[in-house]
């Protein structure tokens, strides 16, 4: 079942740590989201495999926008 990892707040994608196909564990960092000049690591909500990355570095995102899809 696909799991959407969403932006918890508005901000800018500073860094994408994983790539499609990577196996990730719960709480592993996927993306760094910069908001209010603070780098916020966005982590995997559960174990899984990165199915799709929906953003690229430098993108501005809104709250609840899908960043990564885990399979």
């Amino acid at each position: 079942m696909a799991i959407d990892v969403i932006a918890p707040m508005p901000g800018t994608i500073k860094e994408i740590i994983v790539k499609a196909g990577d196996a990730v564990k719960e709480d592993e960092e996927l993306v760094i989201l910069e908001a209010m000049k603070m780098e916020n690591p966005i982590v995997a909500p559960s174990n899984g495999t990165v199915k799709e990355i929906k953003v690229k570095e430098g993108d501005k995102v809104n709250t609840s926008q899908v960043l990564v899809v885990l399979g």
Binding site: P8, M9, D27, A35, M36, M38, N40, P41, V43, P45
Partner: peptide, 12 residues
């Protein structure tokens, strides 16, 4: 907040 729950984003 993140030290106790990495999925908790309290910043805003």
């Amino acid at each position: 907040g993140m030290q106790y729950n990495k999925k908790n984003y309290l910043l805003m």
